[in-house]
Write a protein that binds this DNA or RNA. Structure first.
Lengths: 219, 219
DNA sequence: ATGGAAATATTGTTGAACAATATTGACATT
DNA sequence: AATGTCAATATTGTTCAACAATATTTCCAT
């Protein structure tokens, strides 16, 4: 908790901190989060910690079992399928009705450039980050605070899935060029085509993810 | 807290209870919710109550001001606009890709019938309930647990807006026939047309809502 | 080994405490 | 009467300790 987080309530800061541990893979799916251990670790009271746990449970990152404690959510095939269903709805929808001059398009273009650069440098983590920025920008096309917040939640959940994979980084690389094609279509005002292309993209990504997850589960 | 709520954590039960108070209008927008008063009222500890408050704050129903307490969210024009943006994305999207045999279509059809019946009986609250069921069923067309949950949150927020209106019930009545048309299109497999119709519906509803809100704000 | 009962640990919830911040009220000045 | 200041009061933010209820582990008898 060394960051300069302002006067936010302790529970919120805690939740944010634990969320970073979750999406960075420092806490593994299925792991139990003991109240005693974590309140000790973060030097906060059990009560404050419990508030944070509740927040994260509502986000789907933790699972709560009565009288047994909270556990890091174990992503399932079903959750992956559901998450991609949401992504198709939100991302394709945002693209379809996108305004050609929307500032988010510039962000998308820059994210594509960044992704290509990182890929050429063999920096797979960098490719993943650029990809994330790209998709967040797509949601921003819809100019909705609530959709943006919701997508953040979905996105965190998806990153939990990546934690289960062996070499998650390579998953992103094949998609850099598709991103390029999509933003190009948008720049040309072909939003319907961009949306269609994104649907193909997401279906492919979903299959890849499911396949990787299947392999990981067998091991 | 007389209901038969199972072994759910106290904070969750509390949050649910307070949520019903919020959407039923028993707590007014802007009102401050004192920790002392409410923990007394519900006969729970301040700690448990605070957990519930945090949950509802995350849902957008309460607003949290540091060192000042929690207040019932005051819906703004901006929030109404955002909420309808979300609804267009979710509901139109769900309709567009709806499968003609989806069980939710039957629910929609029944909700329309119920709405017509209630309207003829002059039961405006009943019309509102039927309308709510109708739209929830539309989201169910997308078969996504996460979208369903998200829509519940949006829906609760919208009901908070209705609390600001003078005669909120009449708002729903004009829409019963549009619902009829939409579900009829769906039954005929014309999902694109249904989606288009819904967009018109939502734009109209949004304008009506904004106008009503404007009137209410002046008073 | 296996089943079950006692011992132990963990969560669920409460109540009291105290620091930090906000609100109120009294008082003096203009 | 209006306004600014400062003390008094109330509220939130957070911690701690306690205890009941439920799980888990240990240990013993079979």
């Amino acid at each position: 908790m060394t960051e300069d987080e302002e006067g936010l309530p302790l529970a919120d800061r805690l939740a944010r901190h634990i969320r970073t541990l979750l999406i960075s893979g420092e806490l593994s799916p299925g792991q139990r989060l003991s109240e005693a251990a974590f309140s000790e670790r973060f030097d906060v009271s059990r009560n404050s910690l419990r508030e944070a746990f509740r927040l994260l449970t509502k986000d789907g990152l933790l699972r709560h079992e009565a009288n047994r404690g909270v556990f890091v959510t174990v992503p399932s095939m079903a959750s992956v399928i559901d998450i991609y269903r949401v992504r198709r709805m939100l991302e394709c929808g945002a693209l379809r009705q996108a305004w050609q001059q929307h500032p988010a398009i510039r962000v998308m273009r820059e994210a594509v450039a960044e992704g290509q650069k990182k890929r050429n440098a063999g920096d797979w983590v960098g490719v993943g980050s650029a990809n994330m920025i790209f998709h967040t920008a797509i949601i921003d096309l819809s100019d909705s605070a609530r959709l943006t917040e919701f997508y953040e939640r979905i996105s965190a959940e998806l990153r939990l899935c990546f934690g289960l994979l062996n070499d998650p980084e390579h998953l992103h690389s094949p998609f850099v060029d598709m991103n390029d094609a999509i933003v190009t279509l948008l720049e040309q005002g072909k939003s319907a085509e961009a949306a269609a292309q994104m649907e193909t993209y997401l279906n492919l990504a979903e299959r890849t993810m499911l396949k990787a997850l299947e392999r990981a589960e067998q091991a």
